[in-house]
Computed example of a mutant assay.
Amino acid sequence: MTMRKFKTGNLIFTALFALLSVFFLMPLVWMLSAASKTEKEVWTFPIQWIPTDWNLVANFKAVWMGDVAFGLFYMNSIKIALISTIATIVISAMAGYALGKLDFKGRTLIFTLMLAFMMIPEQATLVPRYIMIKELGLYDSHAALILMGMFSSYFTFLLRQFMIGIHNDMLEAAELDGAGFFRIFWSVVLPLSRPILATVGIIKFIWTWNDYQGPLIMLNSTKLYTIPLGMQFFKEEFGTQISVMMMASVAAILPLLALFLALQKQVIDGIAIGGVKG
């Protein structure tokens, strides 16, 4: 009887969350639908989810072959997001390894200061970062955004907490075999940390790709703009053409979907490992 109630409860919750997922997916489905329609059909009511007059090719050409340099903005975003993500993973992983597994003087103090810095809002450090970038001569360059995005207390903390859970017996065995700190880090710690590294990579890439404030403050030249700033040009050029705007939006989210699909197995493994540890 108890098992039957348990199964019934699971079915109810599954059906409820399935219904909620439909509501969450509706804006995405409408965006895909609008990107394939003519402008007239976008404004029809009730909504026609499947276009009767397909305008996919024309909208695609308006985005990629129009007056707005969408392709240039796209490549700028990919460049900044990829370099920032890779640099963040490397630096945060090394810092997390040092704070979690190496015993050195001042480790606790450094970790405490890092936690304190995490409590400071990003907006409070915007002016000092701007002044620093100006003094370094990096204003109006992609290097400014990459430099600001390379270091992260949050991801260092996340990786440190994960690496603490790696058994010291594995590290000691590698040390007995003659491996040094860097060899242990590269050959033992990093392979075991792949799930959390994939999670960090996805989150960091999404944050960098969607960042509007950083490029707005640090970039002045149009040719250096990223997708979030580039979308403002589309708003000025095609503000009344919703179908073209939706096509640009679809193109903007494709790298994020591709990244998640490529790394979802690692993320799921990380969730499973966390559940076992819990």
Rank of each mutant, 00 (worst) to 15 (best):
M247G: 07
M1N: 09
F60P: 02
F104P: 06
G270H: 09
I50S: 05
V267D: 09
T38L: 07
G201R: 06
E135K: 13
E172Q: 05
T44D: 11
L256Q: 14
G100I: 03
A124H: 00
A81I: 10
F24D: 11
A252K: 11
L25G: 05
N59E: 06
V42T: 11
F17R: 06
W64H: 03
D67M: 06
Q161C: 00
M245D: 02
L216Y: 13
P46M: 09
Y139F: 15
A35P: 08
I196L: 00
F205E: 04
M31P: 08
I110F: 10
G100S: 15
V276T: 14
G178Q: 01
V200N: 00
T222I: 11
S193F: 02
M163V: 05
A179Q: 04
Q161K: 01
L25T: 10
D169V: 08
M245Q: 15
I89W: 01
K223D: 15
L126M: 15
L32A: 13
R129S: 15
A93V: 02
A34N: 11
A258M: 14
T156P: 00
G165W: 00
L254G: 06
F233I: 00
Q264E: 09
K265W: 08
G275P: 02
G230E: 05
I273R: 15
F17P: 04
G100T: 05
P46T: 09
V57W: 15
F238I: 06
A252L: 08
V29R: 04
K79Y: 13
I217A: 02
S21V: 06
K223V: 11
F70P: 10
A93M: 02
K223C: 01
Y74W: 10
L261V: 14
T108S: 12
G178R: 02
N220K: 15
A144G: 02
M3E: 13
A15C: 13
K61F: 02
V22F: 11
V63D: 09
I12D: 04
T52H: 14
I146G: 04
M246K: 10
G278H: 13
T88W: 03
E237D: 12
L145R: 03
L197M: 07
K101E: 09
A262G: 08
I184R: 14
M3Q: 13
G214V: 00
I196R: 01
N220V: 10
D53T: 14
S243K: 05
F73I: 11
M31C: 12
A81H: 05
A272Q: 15
F238C: 04
Q241G: 01
T108K: 12
A144S: 13
A143Y: 13
M150E: 05
G149T: 08
E122H: 11
Q48W: 01
S84D: 11
Y97L: 04
S21Y: 06
D103A: 03
A248Q: 08
I78N: 04
R4P: 00
S33R: 09
D211I: 03
K277M: 12
A15N: 09
A144E: 02
T8R: 14
P195S: 01
A69W: 05
L256R: 07
A93C: 03
L32D: 04
L147I: 10
P27N: 10
L197S: 01
I227P: 03
I196D: 01
P51S: 10
A143K: 07
T199A: 12
P27R: 12
L16T: 14
V267K: 04
W49G: 06
V189D: 00
F104Q: 05
V22C: 07
W43T: 12
I271E: 06
W209H: 05
I86T: 13
